[in-house]
């Protein structure tokens, strides 16, 4: 589903190279985790894939279901089925959460040539999905993420994901800032979306999220490259021994 080949990227401002040849394949139906120390390029990878300004791809390619992602605008990537759950979801005062969600859902449907949802149809679906994430009506009415707790913001990200039904979901440190209960709730939301047609790339520092969202494959990223790939046991290994030993082994 997601194919990344020899991806090199640098900061537009200053030209510092961050991604130095990432190779990664995530087939449909699988959950892949990327772990790695700070500064290894994990978040940059998620930004480059979703089309954030400020990065320049110097080499390599990335495709989603065979479509070249890197030439598309961020909204086109979203319509093609890519979703990024932000590490720090953005607050947007004055724009209601529901308005925002409906605008996003219908913009994607329109881009794909599908019929837009009416207000009634949309409300029915959103209420159902919000309920399973413990998001109440009041939270839906509030401005996007304004005054939300850390847990509420992350649940709101998962709600967006549930509404937009992407093919490929990237979760950027979704566990950061969450207590155990909030993390479980978020993980349950993610697990409910697992399906044979959908794939996940879970970026995290810690093993603990992976106790709740069980990965099929674990990659270790360091200095802009995937340096090791293995099964779930690789995450446990990192948790116990840290990255030091792994890095020494690879270098």
């Amino acid at each position: 589903m997601l194919e990344i080949k020899n991806l090199h990227a640098e900061l537009e401002d200053g030209g510092k190279q961050i991604l130095k040849g990432v190779n990664l394949t995530v087939p449909a139906g699988q959950v892949h985790a990327i772990m790695g120390p700070n500064g290894s390029g994990k978040s940059t990878l998620s930004y480059v894939l979703s089309g954030r300004d400020g990065y320049e791809v110097t080499e390599g390619e990335a495709t989603l279901d065979g479509q070249a992602l890197l030439d598309m605008e961020p909204e086109e990537r979203a319509a093609a089925g890519l979703f990024l759950a932000f590490q720090y979801p953005v607050e947007i005062p004055g724009v209601g959460n529901l308005t925002f969600l409906r605008t996003a859902v219908n913009a994607q449907r329109k881009a794909r040539g599908e019929e837009e949802l009416t207000a009634a149809e949309f409300l029915k679906v959103v209420r159902e999905k919000a309920k399973s994430l413990n998001i109440d009506a009041e939270m839906l009415k509030r401005p996007v993420n304004v005054g939300f707790s850390g847990g509420e913001k992350k649940r709101n990200e998962i709600l967006q994901m549930a509404m937009l039904e992407p093919r490929m979901c990237i979760l950027d440190e979704t566990d950061s800032g969450l207590d155990v209960d909030a993390m479980r709730l978020v993980a349950e939301g993610v697990n409910a979306l697992r399906s044979p047609d959908r794939a996940f790339l879970v970026i995290t520092h810690y093993q603990r999220l992976l106790d709740h969202i069980k990965p099929d494959v674990v990659h270790i990223m360091f200095d802009g490259r995937i340096i090791k790939t293995g099964g779930p046991e690789l995450a446990l290994e990192v948790e116990q021994n840290g990255y030091g030993e792994l890095l020494a082994e690879v270098q």
Binding site: S50, D53, A78, A79, I92, P93, G94, V95, T103, P143
Partner: peptide, 27 residues
């Protein structure tokens, strides 16, 4: 720029995202 990217990453076209952010600013 971050808010603009956030909206666009959800599939909201750039022009619409800009309008929403201007309205947000005036709110």
């Amino acid at each position: 720029e971050t808010a603009l990217f956030y909206l666009r990453s959800r599939g909201v076209p750039k022009e619409r995202a800009t309008v929403l952010l201007v309205l947000s600013f005036l709110a």
